[in-house]
């Protein structure tokens, strides 16, 4: 178990290094919902290339992992596709409305000591845990 914890902390350091690189090179926050969402609406023409490139790297990472060690690291979905659709709508709508997700608020925002991001992170963690509690321990789980 401690091996997993070490890998997890190392993964966190990699995520942080990515955020620092993006800030040092382009002066941008590494917030995934913002980087992707602005491609759907909002980003001007000259502001799209780096977003597409970043997302390309993100999508390419499991392929790289697969080439290096023979497994992508992607785990199977835990719920059936209608639940995935509901979850996706909530995640997309909520992160756009709230101005960030786990990366933009949870990592970059907290690292900037932003009170807004700290509040958002507390709220989405608490509601996330509450949702899991209701689904698993009150309703008895989603059939997947």
């Amino acid at each position: 178990m401690s091996h997993e914890w070490f890998l997890s902390a190392l993964g966190g350091v990699a995520i942080g290094a990515s955020a620092v690189l993006l800030m040092a090179a382009l002066g941008r926050i590494a917030g995934i919902s913002g980087i992707a969402g602005s491609l759907l609406s909002g980003a001007e023409k000259g502001d799209r290339g780096w977003r597409v490139a970043f997302l390309g790297g993100l999508v390419g990472a499991p392929l790289l992992a697969w080439l290096v060690r023979g497994e992508s690291g992607l785990g199977p979905p835990q719920v059936s596709w209608p639940w995935m659709a509901v979850a996706g709508l909530l995640v997309g709508f909520g992160t756009r409305l709230g101005g960030g997700c786990t990366s933009g608020h949870g990592v970059c925002g907290i690292a900037r000591l932003s009170p807004r991001s700290l509040l958002a992170t507390v709220v989405f963690m608490a509601v996330g845990a509450g949702t899991v509690f209701v689904i698993r321990h009150v309703l008895g789980g989603t059939s997947s």
Binding site: V86, L90, V91, G94, A120, V123, I135
Partner: peptide, 19 residues
């Protein structure tokens, strides 16, 4: 901010995927 974070948290808790 609060409503958005709450809706996001609900979606995250359903499927376990953030963006």
């Amino acid at each position: 901010l609060v409503l958005g974070a709450a809706l996001f948290g609900a979606g995250w808790g359903i499927a376990g995927y953030c963006p």
